[in-house]
Simulated scan of single mutants.
Amino acid sequence: MIKVRPKRTRQRAAAKAVRRGLSDAAVLEAEVACGHRFKDKALLVTALTHPSAVTAAESLQHANQRLEFLGDRVLNLLIAERLIERRKNETEGDLAPRLNRLVKKGACAEAFRHLGLGVFLLLSDSEVASGGRERESTLGDACEAVIAAIYLDGGLGAARKFVEKAWAPQFTGGPAEMKDPKTLLQEWAQGQGHPLPEYVVTGRSGPDHAPEYEVEVRIAQNGTAAASGPSKRDAERQAAARMLEQLKGTT
């Protein structure tokens, strides 16, 4: 007689198989970036495993997508809770657009980049080649999955701490500052009749799993600004933000 393992046992075995995709050192670094030490590290690995990277264990693909589903709901609750606590005099009509702005896919991707978690994503070679590690939808989905993983592992309080850390720049910025610095810099250049900003990668250091890019942004007749980050996109954003700060002193 063939014995069939219980469903939970099969899921744990599948999770252990995927964990081979991240070294113990990488898992620890990802935990530090998240600000949460996982009791069940397989949850974190599953959250960081893009469906494209799953081949044999199809249940893991579904597990990742289920985490996204749950993480989206947890995030909406936490952001709504924060808005209610911090903006006591605002009406529902005032709070709704703030909520929508902070839970949209772009905001999740921005939070994921802020923590530098993109380097830990497990993606297929084709997904990487097509720019998946920088794609907003991919990063946003992964962020939601990580929120769910933290919630399941440590409860709502742990998920709240993660959101406070990951969304810190977006919480402190005003509506105009919520725009991507690259977008703001481009709008400024166009408004002044200048050519669009030029971004140049001037250096790269660190191991493949945790690279550090150095980028310089240039605008004709307005000098340059440089910054570094865990991805070219993040370094470009930081460089754009520094250029905007420099321009404030000249206007």
Rank of each mutant, 00 (worst) to 15 (best):
R160G: 03
E144R: 14
W167Y: 12
A129Y: 07
P169A: 09
D125V: 14
G173S: 11
L152M: 13
G118L: 15
L152W: 04
V163E: 05
G157Q: 09
A159Y: 00
V128H: 11
E127V: 05
A142E: 03
C143E: 02
K165P: 03
G173W: 15
A158Y: 05
G157A: 10
A159S: 04
V128W: 08
L152K: 15
S124I: 07
V119R: 08
L122V: 12
A159I: 03
A159M: 04
A176C: 13
Q170A: 14
A148R: 00
G132N: 02
A176I: 13
G154A: 09
G174Q: 12
V119C: 09
G154H: 04
G173M: 14
E134D: 11
D141G: 01
F120D: 03
K179L: 11
G118T: 12
R135G: 05
V119P: 02
L156R: 13
Y151V: 05
I147M: 04
L156D: 06
V146H: 00
P169C: 11
W167L: 09
A166R: 08
S126V: 15
T138K: 05
A159N: 01
L152P: 04
K161C: 05
G132K: 02
S126G: 08
K179Y: 09
G173F: 15
L123H: 01
R160Q: 11
G140F: 03
G131N: 08
A142C: 13
G173R: 14
Y151K: 04
E177N: 08
D153P: 04
G157K: 13
E136K: 07
G154T: 11
F120L: 07
M178V: 15
W167T: 01
G174T: 12
K179V: 09
A149K: 04
A149Q: 07
F120Y: 13
R133E: 05
A168Y: 10
E177G: 14
G154Q: 08
G132E: 02
S126T: 13
V146C: 03
L156P: 02
S130C: 05
A149D: 04
T138Q: 11
E164F: 14
G157I: 05
R133F: 06
G174W: 12
W167G: 01
T172D: 14
G118R: 06
A129N: 13
D141I: 01
E164A: 14
L122H: 06
A149W: 05
E177A: 13
D141W: 00
R135C: 06
G173T: 08
E136G: 08
A166T: 08
D153Y: 11
E144T: 09
E127C: 15
K161V: 06
E144V: 05
T138Y: 04
G154M: 04
F162D: 01
L152Q: 10
S137I: 12
L152E: 12
R160D: 12
L139W: 01
K161E: 11
P175L: 11
E164N: 12
W167C: 03
G155V: 12
G173E: 09
I150S: 00
Y151H: 11
V128C: 06
A158K: 01
A159G: 03
E134Y: 14
A142W: 00
E136W: 03
V119H: 10
E136H: 04
F171N: 01
E127Y: 03
L121F: 12
G140M: 03
D141Y: 02
G155Q: 10
A176D: 10
V146E: 00
R135I: 07
I147S: 03
A159W: 00
G157E: 08
V119Q: 13
G118V: 07
